[in-house]
Nucleic acid binder design. Sequence first.
DNA 1: AAATGTGAAGCGATTCACAGCC
DNA 2: GGCTGTGAATCGCTTCACATTT
Lengths: 227, 227
Amino acid sequence: MSQEGLSPATASRLPIYARGLRELAQGGVQFVSSKSLAETTGLEAHLIRKDLSRLGTLGKRGVGYQVTELLSELTEFLRLFRTWRVAIAGCGRLGLALASYLPLAGRNFRLVAAFDCSARKIGTKAAGIEILPWTRMPAVLRERAVDMVIIATPPLAAQSVADLAVEGGTTLILNYAPTSLTVPEGVVVRNVDLADEMQALTLRITGRPVLRTRRLASPAIPWITQQ
Amino acid sequence: MSQEGLSPATASRLPIYARGLRELAQGGVQFVSSKSLAETTGLEAHLIRKDLSRLGTLGKRGVGYQVTELLSELTEFLRLFRTWRVAIAGCGRLGLALASYLPLAGRNFRLVAAFDCSARKIGTKAAGIEILPWTRMPAVLRERAVDMVIIATPPLAAQSVADLAVEGGTTLILNYAPTSLTVPEGVVVRNVDLADEMQALTLRITGRPVLRTRRLASPAIPWITQQ
DNA sequence: AAATGTGAAGCGATTCACAGCC
DNA sequence: GGCTGTGAATCGCTTCACATTT
C-alpha cells in the first residue's frame, strides 16, 4: 500500500470511510460492499471503489471488503495509531467546546496545552488542562512537543496568536477565527469559518427561486448550479 | 454577465473574497488589484479574476477593483441583505458556542430557536433565545419560519434530530455531529466534522516529502495536498 | 452471480497567455 | 506600464464500462 500520488480528494474522504467502517464494526458487520458503504457514508460506490483501490487491493471480488481489515488499513494510512499533541489558543466558548470534543473524536488527538489572554481564565482548566497565559505559548509549545495549534480566538487576536504558534515551532494550524492568516512557508494553515459553511449552504437554495424578483436596474444575477 | 450557472467552486470562494474586502474597506483601502486581494485571501490572482469576471465586469483594467463597489456586488449576490433564520439543535458546549458566534459572524444569520433534550437545559437561554424541548422542533420550526437547522448534538442523537428538522420543513442542515445523515431528496446537508478537519491537516505533513506549500492560507475547498 | 479493480471517457475547475482597456 | 477579462490549454477528479476474480 503506497502513499505515492494519493490525490487530495481521495485523502479527504478516507476519514469518512473510516468513520463509516467504525460504525459498521460496532454493529457487528463483517463484510461490506462498496454499495452498502456508499449508503452509510453518503458517497458514490464507484468513487469508494476507486479510492480504496488506490490504497491497494483491499477487497475480495464477488464478496466485498472485510470491515475490520479495511478499517485497520485506513487507520494505518491515516496515522491514527499515532497520538497528535494539540494545543488550543483561546478558551472562550468555542475553545472549550473544541477542548472537550477532542477526546471524543475517536481519533488520537490529545490536548496537551491551552492558552488564553484573559487573567480571569488563567489557572482554570479546559478539559483537565491548565490554561496558561498566551505569552508563554512559544516556550510551552516546544516543551510539550505540540504538533498542532487550534486557534479559537476573536479575529483580531488570531494573527498574533498564529505568530506565537509559529515562533513555538508549530507547523500545523487549524484556524477557527474568521480571518485569513499569514504564515511563513512550511506552515500549513486550514481555515474553518462557521459563517462560510452557512453561507455555502444558503447558496445551494438561493439561486433560482428568488432570482426574478430582483429589481431591473441591476443586471441579472447569475445563479448557482445545483450539483 | 452570464446567464448560466455559477459553479459551486466559484460560489464557495465568494464569501472569502467578501471577508477580505471587508477587512480592506475597514483599513480604508479604496482600490485593490487581483494580486493584492490574492495576498489577503490566500487564493490565486488568476482565479480571483476569473471568479469575479463571472459576476460581471466589476473591475477597471489597469486599475483594479473599487473595494466598496465590489463588496456591495458580492453582498448582493450572496444575499447578505437577507436575514437567514437559524435554529440550533443541541445546546451543549458546541451548540452554545455556535449560538453566540452567530451575531458576530458579520453575515445576516439570526438565531430564532434553540432545542435540547436535557430537562436541565429547557427554559434556560442560548444567546438570548429560550431553549425548548426537542419534541417541539417540527412545530416551532414552522412557526418561526426557520431556514436552516444546525445540529450540534452527540452523534447518536443526530439522525433523530435531522428527521425532526425535515418534519418541520427544513431544507438546509448544517451537521456538526460526527455521523452521516440520511435525508430525503431536496434537503441539503453539509457535514462539518471537527476531527475530519484535524485529520486533513495531519495528512498534509505525514506523507513523506513535505508538500510544497505555495499558499499562505488554505484553499477555499478544503484539500490536502497541492500539486 | 456478485462485486472488485481499472483503463478510458467525460467533465469541471484551474492555469495560461494574451487581447483589450486605463 | 499596469491590470482586468477571457478563450484555449491543461489538469485533476469522477463516472463509466467492463474485464476479472471469487
